[in-house]
Amino acid sequence: MPTSRSSRIRVLVAEQAARRGAGVGVVDVCTAAVAALPVGGAGLSAMSRTRASYPLCSTDDISERLEELQLTLGEGPCVDAFTHGVAVLVPDLRSGELQDCWPVFADAALEAGALAVFALPLLNGAISPGVLDLYAQVPVQLDTEELADAMAFADLATLVLLDAQIDETGGPAGDGAPKGHMEDLGEYRAEISQATGILTVQLGVGIEEAFIRLRAYAYAQGLRLTVVSADVVARRLRFSPDAEPTRTDEDP
């Protein structure tokens, strides 16, 4: 089987981190995306329905300005991408229809020097921690391959962003992500999502934190996420708010 898109993207991002001499962070996703796609810059904002949204990183002044503008004005492709959970692709900001859509943002973005903007939501089911924004100083269309790459960068950004919170929630802290941490990236298994839902009840936390805790446990134990998830779904492994997870060896 050929190398999957997600592993290729993962390598590009890891190379940026290595160049920086640090563990993989969201900024590496941004710089790698700019290098790989026909765009001039990228920025990433943490978004939330319940808390304040804030910019996390940007690769240049224009992308920094775009993030600020959208979060301050509460309008723009990034806001729409977050609200609707879909990619918002704007090959040319000068289109009249867009001026109606985002009356203030469209002009301000043009003034800042952006002509094309692409907003990719960071998504994993109900977990939506932010948006990746790409911009270009000339009108540009992303072709099918480029769009698929852009979405793969956003998928990776989702996990990098969530894993950055692991040390805050009792998982392994330290520089960068634990070893093998991206192994399960391309892999989708229903059990991972089901286990995440189960943990919201066992831990009494929101879906995002449940997912972070599930991943943190897998790293700490050196287990694959799919294995831990299958144990949770089979009720062989139970999490609790004030104690370490407990394992029962027999099936219920």
């Binding site: 089911g125 109900a126 839902g197």
Partner: peptide, 24 residues
């Protein structure tokens, strides 16, 4: 491929909800 991506995400969302409801 964006439509498919949306569909895949909707699948993840429903699995998360199944887990929550099943446990509850």
């Amino acid at each position: 491929n964006e439509q498919l991506q949306t569909a895949l995400n909707s699948r993840v969302l429903i699995e998360q909800a199944k887990g929550k409801l099943a446990e509850r």
